[in-house]
Design a protein around this nucleic acid. Sequence first.
DNA 1: CCGCGTAATGCTCGATTTGAGTATAAGAGG
DNA 2: CCTCTTATACTCAAATCGAGCATTACGCGG
Lengths: 347, 347
Amino acid sequence: MAGLAAGAAETARSRRASPRENGRGASLSIGLSAVIVAATPDEPRVLALRNGADGAEALPSGPLESEHRTLEIGLRSWVERQTRQRLGYVEQLYTFGDRDRIETDRGAPVRALTVAYLALVRPAPREHGSPLEARPGGSAEAAWQNWYRYFPWEDWRAGRPAAIPALEDRLASWVRAASGPERRLREERVGLAFARPWNDELVLERYELLYEAGLIGERWRDLGRPSSEAEMPASGTAMAADHRRILATAIGRLRGKIKYRPVVFELMPPAFTLLQLQRTVEALSGVRLHKQNFRRLVEQQGLVEETGEISGETGGRPARLVRFRRAVVLERPAPGLRLRTGHRVPA
Amino acid sequence: MAGLAAGAAETARSRRASPRENGRGASLSIGLSAVIVAATPDEPRVLALRNGADGAEALPSGPLESEHRTLEIGLRSWVERQTRQRLGYVEQLYTFGDRDRIETDRGAPVRALTVAYLALVRPAPREHGSPLEARPGGSAEAAWQNWYRYFPWEDWRAGRPAAIPALEDRLASWVRAASGPERRLREERVGLAFARPWNDELVLERYELLYEAGLIGERWRDLGRPSSEAEMPASGTAMAADHRRILATAIGRLRGKIKYRPVVFELMPPAFTLLQLQRTVEALSGVRLHKQNFRRLVEQQGLVEETGEISGETGGRPARLVRFRRAVVLERPAPGLRLRTGHRVPA
DNA sequence: CCGCGTAATGCTCGATTTGAGTATAAGAGG
DNA sequence: CCTCTTATACTCAAATCGAGCATTACGCGG
């Protein structure tokens, strides 16, 4: 958790503010990047631009400008200009600043500091359940992408992903390639990240392992060596710079957060059925859930309330439409703690 | 959670790198700040410098330098130079960057971006249980401070803090001072942040409410108006710039994190008794815990293991000394989730 | 109108976990 | 040996969980 491994990237990023001279001779640029997430009951989606400097897909990003009062405002305005997508829920993710996160400004190297954000958007009503528009409007290059395109090993909804065995094989040899304490360390990291039962939150940890083991395209690009496709079985689509690492951070954070904050509802339409909710959670977390217990949880936690309406679109028996019950935020301290009241003394 | 309220501060900060010109005319500086936490069974402590520009206490901080390969390395080196304190566990907290977080460089305003970190340090063996050295060595101005000095309303270990009634009174009038939807909003925010039962994690939310309501010294300083002490009943010691906000962020994060990650152990000596552990958790979270249930939790979760030794220092019957059981990280997905395995289908 | 297929919803039930105690053990100090 | 203080064991009802089975209600193809 503490500290991300260094992710090198000499790829130039477009649209940055012109860099400033650092008193000590190096240059510095500050960027804002956004992981913009939407979801249907089938697919978790992220907004990507097709215009990476090297043609790779990229996250919407732009420079911090002085007229932006706060970082978040800067981000919102950039995103809206770039993708014509209005942002609702926004939270700061992480600030990436390794020295080797370099871009070039007219040939001069520039240290790139990027403050990354996670944003959740609600699909237009008719889109929930049907595919989202591929083109969210605005910049012609912005498109919604199923995020498992970048992380095929993260989707366990239909059972163990086909990519896993090959990846585990390669990881095992990567472990064997080391010796002594380093080997034990690798062993432990792999064991934790790929343990059964599957831990859906370790998205970043898995990405970093695969990166270090040379199973991620970006790794070879960052090293300046050609990537031999054969070496990377089903390792997903590459992205510009370290955007895939940022995306991994976002997915892990979101998967964790839905378990103790009612953030899923930021992705749901105003009214929905319990199965739609369940499928959306499943899409995000990449695992299947037990239907009856899921509804029991949602209902007895008071997360939703009746709208009184009925959906006919189910394909089976019609379902009640419910909506998010805002009051729950005032009632539960934060659904799902450790240290329950039983550990506390009445005071 | 999404977005921090703007925290203004025209106080100059010392020891920043010289600012760089921003293409658009404004200047920018990047700082690293550290909330360094230690704990005894009695007191949660934070390392503070006594040398704020206006004499206020400040968090250790310094500029990002180009020779630092990563932000975290830069932070560590700064802290070690400034306080002679070696850092163990370090995690990035938040990046603060409101435009009005300004410092001045020879008269010119500079936008200050600060990447804040949370660090946990283990006291020297003999210090756990006895007071920490006031002077951690290194810079003569660094001193450990009980963090409740800055947040008197956060310590409920001895029952409702004396400061609370006055603060709630003042908050109630602040709520009444608004009307319409703004009033309802304030009402809800206060209701949530100060609800019974007390929610120990809402440290930042409470600080921001008190700040907005004018009950925090920094507010008046930031507005450039004299703070009438009478208006601020028991509102704690002020800090330089927005350091108290950063500290609030850190405390809230730490209080939340101990509930699902074994981070407390980063603050414990190698061997300790269960009561020492309990008291440390209580000191951090500011609430008292049920002794028997606390031990049951710790033991049956497998968080600790016997050392075989016995402590004589208890004041009562001698206690077993235990140590953190590292293996727990490999066993439990993350002690304390929602969505237990019962919601998952075997796949 | 019947029988499927597909979902929605209801309900059960043993196994754990929790919340809140009570009871007993083992030192130190007088 | 009495008291104070803390450690540690054990209890027990209530709530929650994990895993199912059973029933209901549409649309649709005959």
